[in-house]
Amino acid sequence: MSDFFTVYHHLFNTFLLGSGYALSQWVVMRAGVFSVATAGLASIGAYCAAILTTKLGWPHPLSILAGTLLGTLTGLLLSVPLARLRGVFQAIATLAFVQIVVAVGLFSDSLTGGAIGLNAIPILVGTKENLLALLCTIYVLLAIGATRVGRAFEAIRQDEAVASSLGVSVTFHQSLAFGLSGAIAGLFGGLEAFQTFTLFPNTYGFGLIVAALSYVVLGGRRSVAGPIVGTAILLILPEVSRPLADYRNALYGVIMMLVIAFMPRGIVDTGLLYLRRRRLAAKAAAESRQ
């Protein structure tokens, strides 16, 4: 067992961080916002945390907290102008946001190290912290799902007009979702900063957008387990065999095309739906026998 963990230690941490980003992507979509800002928000969290510790000597938990708060704040700020826009246009605007963050990261090299990277960040975070952060995130997202805000999110995602006809403020909840997405992305960005030694602006670019989206699409957009399962599958598959690792991106591409065409709800949600229908059918059959 301990061997297993030394070999797969790195992969497991990648999975925990990936799950975090996937959940950040998931939570905005849960409230019906098509944002891809997660990558940019993670970048802000990571650089904020790393800079505070390497340049100002802040203790790393405080830096990570600051990164989380800055991510939250950025998410909330983004949500204000974006409330006016509809689906695809929200996606393009947040894509622009991610590109701006990358470009600014590359440009302001005195602060961020630019393309050479922000170096010599102490390695202070490991599996324990990642796991704790992921569990806390999952708890909050499950709590939302089980209470009032979750019902509002669900209503907005499915039909904004219905939601507002019942007193649900679309703007408020979408801002809230943006804030949560920023908090989660900022938190995991901050954690990542303290386990990679060097940060590059391009780590949080188009590639991370695609990764986070594909985790969520594969796993499912409704239940909290969806993005986590999606992340696990997409990270483990390339480890299974060498060719899959060489063509990792093509593999992601094929999976994205197949899932959206044949299983648009994703693996977990489709599975849950199947189980529920079977249970209902069994119940109905039992009732008709009586």
């Binding site: 996606a91 699409v217 991106n249 992601y252 591409g253 959206i260």
Partner: peptide, 24 residues
């Protein structure tokens, strides 16, 4: 996707997928 209710989102995902395949 053309007839599905979520074509807007679906197209973005599936063409991203196509992009990854062609680029690889």
């Amino acid at each position: 996707l053309r007839k599905s209710g979520e074509a807007e989102f679906g197209a973005i995902i599936s063409t991203l997928g196509a992009e990854l395949i062609i680029v690889t």
